[in-house]
Design a protein around this nucleic acid. Structure first.
Lengths: 248, 248
DNA sequence: AGTTTATTGTATCATTTAGATACAATAATA
DNA sequence: TATTATTGTATCTAAATGATACAATAAACT
């Protein structure tokens, strides 16, 4: 049995949690022109899972999601929103967790609460890839980025959860202005366009994209970014934080 | 103690339910040029509540919401969608239910599951006002429509839930095409416009509204509606069901 | 029966937004 | 200094939206 974790501990933990409720986070990042998703590789198996957790009795569901995200990425103050509740009767074989425990030498009775039905609250987060310090949880051996078009097979309905999260992100990208949460503080219009093209899976006309973005009036133009390339240097932009606010 | 319901029954019911999860439905209807919301008047109190319920262990959360809606309105096959999870630590005084029970002569211990913390899944429904046969539940003396701008004080955070539901409806009205779910099968463009104006709280230019709606190409023009008024009779329209589909 | 009235359906204008293309400005290289 | 690739902006066109006008018409009134 691995150190620091016993069936007794699990029972104590259970008492402090909201029963039947779980949280799954689809953490989006952007790197190398790819939209990435954080996934955990479960110890001693070939299974992957989304960062997730449970809701404590003394915290709100949104607080729980922020805590999960902080534990896996080290980030606070991130864009994080509910997008769907996954509450099918059979969301996939709940025994996957049992397999994981067995693979790690932990015997837990079949009727343990962990293997009961959970309704999962789906959250999606938009983070600055470069700021993330990804950290596996105690069941996982690693926590890494995967291209959203090439995700490993994940437990339960986690692949479907990512699909739904991406749909929501596409919707919100047109609707609210949330895209730049995936970029560093300073970015060029070219980088922003590449981000939009990746998420929407559609090519955009550069000049028109630039016109539209700048007409929003939410960007502050900073110094030029000397790229070293043999051509005109693009300006860096920053979102004027006074203009927008992402709160719970 | 009222017939048909005892503490023992409640315990049995409890065993069949997903713990800590509840469902609240904001049922929108349209009548007399007003956007209406269904609310229950709790027996022997001046408190109101949204139609709601719990999730059975053998049904999905969406099925649970449909069941709640069927029980309160008699309707199946309605537009019903999740819009938010209300999971604050203190969503208001959970003892309101206790008050209701006391007012009805039912003593339930303070530590009963009904008074514990619940996370509520918010659903909103769009229904044909004329088709609803509103039916109170066993805790309520009536189930009636209220103008959305003049709702009675409701328990817990139910007033806030309605506000959030209305925001979602406004968003979806622009985005998807869901408005006509609030109208009878056949309707005039004038009626549809009045509906949009009420929901969006904004006047629209008739000719432009008509042009936009008809350009969607989802309406089938039927016979004229002879209103009896001394002017040109408007056509009735129906949504071509082949074109659109609302599924879970 | 002809006139009046209010409302509907559609046309037409102007304005705004979006798509397509062109071109001057420019950072590094040849 | 010319070349090159890319950026920022302008311009033209097309589509969507806003504002207004007007003919068609169901019932009431003369």
């Amino acid at each position: 049995m691995p150190e620091g974790q016993s069936s007794l501990d699990l029972l104590e933990i259970w008492e402090s949690l909201m029963p039947s409720l779980s949280i799954d986070c689809v953490v989006f990042g952007f790197h190398d022109g790819q939209l990435k998703v954080l996934a955990l590789k479960l110890k001693n198996t070939e299974q992957y899972a989304l960062p997730g957790g449970f809701v404590r009795k003394d915290e709100s569901v949104n607080e729980a999601a922020h805590r999960v995200l902080r534990d896996r990425t080290g980030l606070t103050d991130i864009f994080l929103e509910q997008f769907y509740v996954f509450g099918e009767r059979e969301r996939g074989d709940q025994r996957v967790h049992q397999e994981v425990f067995r693979a790690n030498g932990v015997e837990i009775p079949d009727d343990h609460w962990l293997f009961q039905r959970f309704v999962s609250l789906g959250y999606y987060a938009l983070v600055d890839f470069s700021k993330v310090r990804s950290t596996p949880d105690w069941l996982s051996e690693s926590c890494d980025w995967h291209d959203h078009r090439d995700l490993p097979p994940m437990i339960l309905d986690h692949n479907a959860i990512v699909t739904k999260a991406l749909e929501t992100l596409r919707l919100m990208l047109d609707h609210k202005l949330v895209g730049f949460n995936l970029l560093p503080e300073k970015f060029t219009m070219g980088e922003l366009q590449q981000l939009y093209e990746t998420i929407l899976d559609k090519e955009l006309v550069r000049s028109n994209f630039q016109r539209k973005m700048l007409s929003l009036g939410i960007f502050e133009r900073l110094e030029k970014k000397m790229t070293g390339a043999a051509n005109k240097a693009p300006y860096l932009y920053r979102v004027e934080l006074n203009t927008l606010r992402n709160k719970d």
